[in-house]
C-alpha cells in the first residue's frame, strides 16, 4: 500500500497513532444490562442444583451409615412371662444369661452383650413420657449380638436354639428396617436425579433462549463478521465463550450461596446428637466440596455446548446462503 494520503486536500493533524492504539478490544464485550437477567436465572439454577446435590449426597451418606450400623447385628428380646412379679424378673434375667451363653458359642457370633434396663426403659419413653417407670413393671431384656464380619446368622436358626433351651425370645436382624431405608433412599435418589435433570433442562432452555436473544441483539455484529469472512465457528466461539464465562461466574455464585445456606441451615436446626429432628444432620464432606466446585464448570460446559449449537444453527439458517 502506498504511503500517501489519497485525500490530499483534507488537512489532518496526524497524531502518532501508536500511542493511541491501546490493547485489543473485545469484539463481543460483556453487556451488563442485557446479560443480567440470564445471569440471575443461572445463579438460581446453580443454587438449586447445588442444594439438590448436597441434600442427595447427605441423605445417601446417612442411609448408608444406618445400613452399615445395622448390618452384622441382631437384637434379641427376652420377654417376661406373665405370672408373679418377683419370679418374672428373676426368670427373665436368668434366661437372658443363658441365651447369652448359647449365642456366644456360635461360630458366627463375635460378642453378646446384655443391655442394661435403661435401654428397655428408653424404648418406653415415647409412650410413657418422662414419668418414672415403676421398678416392678415387667420389662423385656435386650441382648445386642455382634456377628463376625462377612458372617450371617439365620434368625430362624438362633430362635430354634433358644426355644430348645426353653427361652422365649424375639430376634430381629433389622432386615425389614434395612429394606425400608433402601426403599426410601432409592426414592429420594430418584427424586434428586429427576430434580437435577429438570435443572439441566432448564439450564439448556435458558441458554438457548439467551443465545437467541444475544444473536438478535448482536445481529449487526454477526452480519459484519459474516461480511469480513468470519467462519461460523469463529462467531459461535465468540458467543459461546461469552455465555459460558457468564455461566461459570453465575454457577460459582449460586453454588457458593447454596453451600453457605446449607451450612447455616445445618447449624440452625441440628441438635446435639447430630440429628435435625428425625432426619440425619447435614455434615459436609470432601465429596460435597468437590460437587460444589463441579457445579460452575458443569453449568459453563452445558451453556458452551448449547450456545455453540444454537449459534451455528442460527447462522446457517439465517445468514449463510
Amino acid at each position: 500500500m502506498v504511503n500517501t494520503l489519497v485525500d490530499t486536500d483534507i488537512q489532518h493533524t496526524e497524531l502518532t497513532a501508536q500511542s493511541h492504539v491501546m490493547k485489543t478490544q473485545a469484539i463481543l464485550p460483556y453487556d451488563k444490562k442485557n446479560d443480567r437477567p440470564l445471569f440471575m436465572v443461572l445463579v438460581i439454577l446453580a443454587f438449586l442444583a447445588t442444594i439438590t446435590l448436597l441434600a442427595t449426597a447427605s441423605g445417601y451418606r446417612a442411609a448408608v451409615g444406618w445400613q452399615e450400623n445395622l448390618q452384622g447385628k441382631l437384637t434379641v428380646q427376652i420377654k417376661p412371662t406373665i405370672s408373679g412379679a418377683d419370679k418374672i424378673t428373676h426368670n427373665t434375667a436368668d434366661k437372658a444369661e443363658r441365651a447369652k451363653i448359647i449365642l456366644a458359642e456360635l461360630d458366627q457370633v463375635k460378642t453378646v452383650t446384655i443391655l442394661p434396663d435403661e435401654h428397655s426403659k428408653a424404648l418406653l419413653e415415647p409412650w410413657l413420657g418422662d414419668a418414672s417407670i415403676p421398678d416392678d413393671l415387667p420389662l423385656p431384656i435386650l441382648l445386642d449380638v455382634q456377628l463376625n464380619s462377612s458372617q450371617n446368622l439365620e434368625v430362624k436358626q438362633a430362635a430354634i436354639l433358644l426355644a430348645e433351651a426353653g427361652i422365649r425370645a424375639d430376634i430381629d436382624d433389622h432386615s425389614q428396617w434395612n429394606k425400608e431405608i433402601k426403599r426410601t433412599t432409592s426414592a429420594a435418589l430418584l427424586l434428586s436425579y429427576l430434580a437435577l435433570g429438570l435443572i439441566i433442562i432448564a439450564s439448556v432452555a435458558a441458554s438457548i433462549f439467551a443465545t437467541r436473544a444475544g444473536l438478535t441483539a448482536q445481529r449487526r455484529l454477526m452480519d459484519v463478521l459474516h461480511q469480513v469472512g468470519a467462519p461460523p465457528d469463529y462467531t459461535a466461539r465468540l458467543l459461546s465463550t461469552r455465555f459460558a464465562t457468564s455461566g461459570f461466574k453465575a454457577g460459582a455464585l449460586g453454588a457458593a450461596s447454596a453451600l453457605l445456606a446449607s451450612v447455616l441451615v445445618g447449624m440452625m436446626f441440628s441438635t446435639s446428637n447430630g440429628f435435625s429432628y428425625f432426619l440425619p444432620g447435614l455434615h459436609l464432606s470432601l465429596t460435597d466440596i468437590y460437587l460444589v466446585i463441579a457445579v460452575p464448570s458443569f453449568l459453563a460446559l452445558i451453556i458452551a455446548i448449547t450456545s455453540w449449537r444454537t449459534v451455528i444453527k442460527t447462522l446457517y439458517n439465517e445468514i449463510y446462503p
Partner: peptide, 22 residues
C-alpha cells in the same frame, strides 16, 4: 496484533484517518 498493527495504522493514514484511529 503485532503483525498487523503497522499495516492498519499505515492504511488509516492513507485514507486520512491516521489521527482518528482511537
Amino acid at each position: 496484533r503485532a503483525d498487523y498493527k503497522d499495516d492498519v495504522l499505515g492504511l488509516l493514514k492513507w485514507v486520512g484517518l491516521g489521527h482518528r484511529s482511537h
